[in-house]
Amino acid sequence: MARAVTTQRKIVATAAAWIIGLAIFFPILWTVLTSFKTEAQAIADPPVWFGFDWTLENYSVVQERSNYFRFLMNSVIIAVGSTVLGLLIAIPSAWSMAFVPGKRTKDVLMWMLSTKMLPAVGVLFPIVLIARFLDLYDTHILLIVVLMLMNLPIIIWMLYTYFKEIPVDILEAARMDGASLRSEIIYVLTPMALPGIASTMLLNIILAWNEAFWTLNLTTTKAAPLTAFIASYSSPEGLFYAKLSAASTMAIAPILIMGWFSQKQLVRGLTFGAVK
């Protein structure tokens, strides 16, 4: 039972939490605000808070100058593609390890996690070489495959922990009830696993969307996603804060919204089920 707390204490805690929360959120808020300013207002001294002439000009300039939508499409294709491909491989794998554990299951799981610890930079050149050899450099398919492999251990671990929570009793009950493996999967397993699969999917789209080693090193123009789009703003050319802000806002907005929706499932997803 939670106890009643004095109002005074609640006020202090609330104030502290809100101040810290707003401070942490401030850079994002500032970026969004700046994206609606003119370049002059963006670097005005002293800084302008809300009292400026709101404009959408930056957004159209960014779209015209660097074709935001093409990068956006690339991001969507790569993030969704790698996640779906990863799920196709991971679901059977996680299913088998969760429901038919053998003596080696734990070792296999740990080994899979260990592949995630391989520093990407250690295999950078071979991957570039293979990509060029197969004529896949700067293509969607290459990034889909590479990001899928990058995140596969996480996907498997997440699904494993979700599947592990489905009581074996229920699957046995289904078997006793005369369900074939197929109907067991369709009528019992899938509906029960769906929330877990959905949050796995969401988290991996986020991870793939924000991945910035392979996407920067394996693309030039054709398949470059938003990470590369933003990186192209790293060398300042004159007045550009407002446009940088507009580009940044557009790059993070979709995933920020998804992330807020998925925050409940996030924890166990990211901790491989070790924290619930």
Binding site: A173, M176, Y187
Partner: peptide
């Protein structure tokens, strides 16, 4: 045969 499990094993959905 029909079985009744200790945890009841009802389909929650």
């Amino acid at each position: 045969l029909a079985m009744v499990f200790q945890s009841y094993a009802l389909y929650p959905h």
